[in-house]
Design a protein around this nucleic acid. Sequence first.
DNA 1: GCATATTTGTCCGTATGTATA
DNA 2: CTATACATACGGACAAATATG
Lengths: 235, 235
Amino acid sequence: MTTTDDPAWLRALAHEVRLFDRSSTAERVADVLRSRITEGELPPGSRLSEEQLVSVLSVSRNTLREAFRLLTHEGLLVHQMHRGVFVPELAADDLVDLYRLRCMIECDVVRSLEGNLDMARLRPLHDDVAAGESAAQRGDWVAVGTANMRFHQHLVELAGSRRMNEVTARLLAELRLAFHAVASAQRLHEPYVNRNRGLLGLLVTGEVERAAKELEEYLHDSRAELLDAVRSRQP
Amino acid sequence: MTTTDDPAWLRALAHEVRLFDRSSTAERVADVLRSRITEGELPPGSRLSEEQLVSVLSVSRNTLREAFRLLTHEGLLVHQMHRGVFVPELAADDLVDLYRLRCMIECDVVRSLEGNLDMARLRPLHDDVAAGESAAQRGDWVAVGTANMRFHQHLVELAGSRRMNEVTARLLAELRLAFHAVASAQRLHEPYVNRNRGLLGLLVTGEVERAAKELEEYLHDSRAELLDAVRSRQP
DNA sequence: GCATATTTGTCCGTATGTATA
DNA sequence: CTATACATACGGACAAATATG
């Protein structure tokens, strides 16, 4: 029995799940759902029906539930007992919390680069900045947002700490949930294309303390922008 | 069919799982296994057999696997594809990584207390120090270790950041895995009873910068002790 | 407030594929 | 290489909680 209502975002799923064959089924399902969530096709607040997804993805309920758990641990789904899983709506509190950790981690990483920074390791950061500039030129503001996120992830990876990378990945994934509350993706992401370029310049010249200060301001401004959007979402 | 080999640590499980009835079955199972791991009854490196645990705990595979996932996310189990779950053995690298995050977080929290610290919120810290001293007097060094961990968890909670609390809980749980590599629990934990008391004193008098510096040394020493033990574990 | 339908939570049995002795 | 043990995944079933009328 096929489902009668078949929203656009559901249609493409079945193929994608079968496309990859690496790792476990649950992880593949999680990959697909993750991209749907971060790209905003599943807006915050929506419930993910087990029955519906099981039939669309052609996986068993147990497998789907394992995928749910994976995403719940990443903060991309919240689980309510006997009610199901939902895409969370970030509150202002959560934003403040997320930025507090981001600032702590990223500034700590930048300051730790003092003295021992191999320029070759900045390669991924250069690429991300370039990708952001290119996307901005063609007006693809979602791609600009993605490039920005990757820039910050790669920045943290300079520290070479596995757990910092993991925590950062989770923070940035959660943060993306708030992006969809902002009306204009351009206004949200455009200013940071140049600021990323500037930040990278300070790293190249080894001015880590100035970079850290700039980063603090950067995150403060970014936070203010998102807070405005989230607060004006619903009174 | 009951299992024929029945190690000591397995025998008490069945009752405990049925004892609590809050929350989901998977979480109860995870609670029981978590205590067994942190208390060292399941030494690092040991494999947790699905079949065996399913029969002992009288839960289904699905439920047990959900519990496994919870603990894997906490860092108390590692999952190898098609091989099962194991209690991880922390490498020296992991210890360095763990302490790097601990130091970053705890020092950041302490410095953030500048100016705005309500003395009443130090209550849990006082209790933990007292518990540590009491346990030390009666020579219960495992309890001293527990009190120390709780002290640091409560310290971080002063920041009021949900995600910092979660990350810290995970870090400390992982850290406990390394404790079992140390021969003498007394040598490992005793020095920090007094140092916790001293740290708390600096917070009471509001000397946050001195407290942060002391904390840095504290963690450095603690790290050195554990690194020695882990490195001399196997040549 | 109550009865019903829907959905989740848990468990079982089995088939298939993978790793290791 | 074969055999065994085990994890992965599926589908069905029933109980329990929630949502709906």
